[in-house]
Design a protein around this nucleic acid. Structure first.
Lengths: 347, 347
DNA sequence: CTGAAAGCGCTTACAG
DNA sequence: CTGAAAGCGCTTACAG
């Protein structure tokens, strides 16, 4: 006895079975007008009975749409990227698009290969989540007329393509300002790679806050990291070993803050009693750290959603009201900062 | 002056320009034999000159292949999932497939909708990364003849579909055994949700090790978590508040181990001096924790690779040598465990 | 309200 | 070695 093989039907087979044309079946399938109620019902019935599903490729070929959005990033590492992806997925869920994810792993050959593949019209649009400057990619995309929006924080004067980010500079300023308001005067900062705009923006905000407070910037307090936990750890040791260590550390992002925590624990330095720590991003686990991390929140999920909505609008041929959007950062005060206790407050 | 518009050419336009048939162009494009060297060169030239790229949809329609693999998971949360995705991506990079990612967020409606979409022949195959039992999904996939492999750890006797996982039970056993060998007698365990096979397997391994050592299992030492940092934190407090607290904690996974660390730090209990901690998974950050976490390694990347290779083989019509693969777990000894110091070793 | 027919851009027997 | 032609499964003017 053979197992029943649920053969996949084509539209014309459905049409034949009902006794109508494929034109009519197509109309029913796509909920277009111009079909009698009776006919519609009969067709509907047969479709359901056979669990008929349209062939994606044929539809795609005819309509020139793939139902696919591509997201490109360097590396999937959690935190920042995942926050944004959540927003993207959520929005895509409503639009019905699928999300293709591609990680370049900083391999330019692979990247170019992938880019080439997109040109075969197999994507409706792309989301660029690349922390470094990728003029060439953006340009190729523009040239190929593939809709895209770049997510990140290129505080460059003007780009000729749509971008979305958040007010990084202000975030850096706010973080530093907050620590100053608590009475800290020696504030260490662990930045991201300084060739990135997003790192420099944080640092610039830090500098600005100090200068406004009339406090000279001590280069010894500025450490460069790569936004990874390990850098937070290592640079904290460096900061602690300074002749005059800081009383607070601005960790650059929450991953590095985790590293800072661990270094401090190991050195038996209590947070926030002996050292204040402030992060950046407000990643999912930030609130669960011990103590809960005070941090500068980037509205990651919102950024993801917004980016996707912008892209979707672009894809459907609309023009964007504003092509360079910045959502605002904000400070989330939890329990990792307090006034310095080892020094007397300035009079 | 108009901007040059790089119009996308079709194959027949290329053919016309060279003065050959599309048949011949297609052969060149697909590197098939049966084309004169001269002709081939001329065609090649024109192709490159125009940066011609095949239309994906047309190709797909003809060949019935999409070049797309779907990965389904509950939630993108980092650690475990990311490890596996790395492996998947790496393998896919070679095969040239793109990866479509879908997160169900435990929403069954959404899940079914998505599943339905796959039936439109828009995927070459799917990777199921769902921690709970998903008989229906697997069955639908089987019925629709969509190739797939389930990643995870269903230690069920026999499934009628391809699976890949790792030796979880043995991992649980090994972790416990190791702590016993160090002299620990009261070992706390924080499991995952106990309705999951993967959680029960760890616990069963734990029990087995204790029983073999002739140590009665104390139910008070068994805490249920959900594999999230917060559970590690909370349950550690519970364990510490026991009349007779453990001297070691088996954290269930590395995320929970992070929570354990934090609770211990907050209670001022040193690792490993005052408490040993062992994790499970060996996630990217495990080695960077302070102190570096001793853990049971699941070969996440390898699992991802293997799963993908199995799927690829399935897609190309081959049959699998073995359909239920388990890679082996192993212990990675770092610095979070040592003999208990508050008790005397048994004589 | 309904359908015949063209066409989306490829690939693939098949014939020459 | 080369090409004419059919066909993958849809959608969409267009005519009736």
């Amino acid at each position: 006895m053979e197992l029943e093989q649920p053969k996949r039907l084509t539209m014309s087979e459905i049409a034949r079975e009902v006794g109508v044309s494929t034109t009519t079946v197509s109309k029913v399938l796509n909920q277009l007008p111009g079909v009698g109620a009776q006919t519609r019902a009969r067709i509907q019935h047969v479709i359901e009975q056979h669990e008929y599903v349209q062939n994606h490729a044929a539809r795609h070929l005819r309509k020139g749409q793939t139902g696919l959005i591509d997201l490109v990033l360097m590396r999937l590492e959690g935190g920042y990227d995942l926050g944004i992806m959540h927003g993207v997925q959520e929005t895509l869920m409503e639009s019905g698009h699928r999300l293709a994810v591609f990680a370049t792993h900083e391999n330019e050959v692979v990247e170019r290969l992938w880019l080439r593949r997109l040109f075969d019209q197999s994507t409706d649009g792309v989301l660029l989540l690349l922390p470094y400057e990728h003029g060439e990619i953006a340009n190729s995309l523009v040239q190929q007329k593939i809709p895209f929006v770049a997510i990140g924080d290129r505080n460059e004067p003007a780009t000729n393509f749509p971008t979305i980010g958040s007010t990084i500079w202000l975030g850096g300023y706010t973080a530093t300002e907050y620590l100053l308001s608590l009475g800290h005067r020696r504030i260490g900062i662990i930045t991201g790679p300084l060739h990135l705009m997003t790192s420099r923006a944080r640092l610039a905000g830090y500098r600005e806050a100090l200068e406004r407070a009339g406090i000279p910037v001590d280069p010894a307090l500025i450490c460069e990291g790569t936004y990874l936990l390990g850098d937070g750890f290592k640079q904290t040791y460096a900061l602690l070993d300074l002749p005059e260590p800081p009383t607070a550390i601005f960790a650059g992002n929450d991953a590095q803050a985790t590293g800072v925590y661990q270094a401090l624990y190991q050195r038996n330095i209590r947070i926030p009693d002996d050292m204040s720590v402030i992060g950046f991003d407000d990643v999912t686990y930030s609130a669960q750290m011990a103590p809960p991390l005070t941090t500068i929140r980037q509205p990651l999920v919102e950024i993801g959603k917004m980016a996707t909505n912008m892209l979707l609008r672009l894809i459907s041929g609309h023009t964007l009201e504003s092509t360079n959007v910045e959502l605002s950062t904000s400070i989330v005060i939890r329990q990792s900062c307090q006034p310095p206790r080892t020094r007397t407050l300035p009079t």
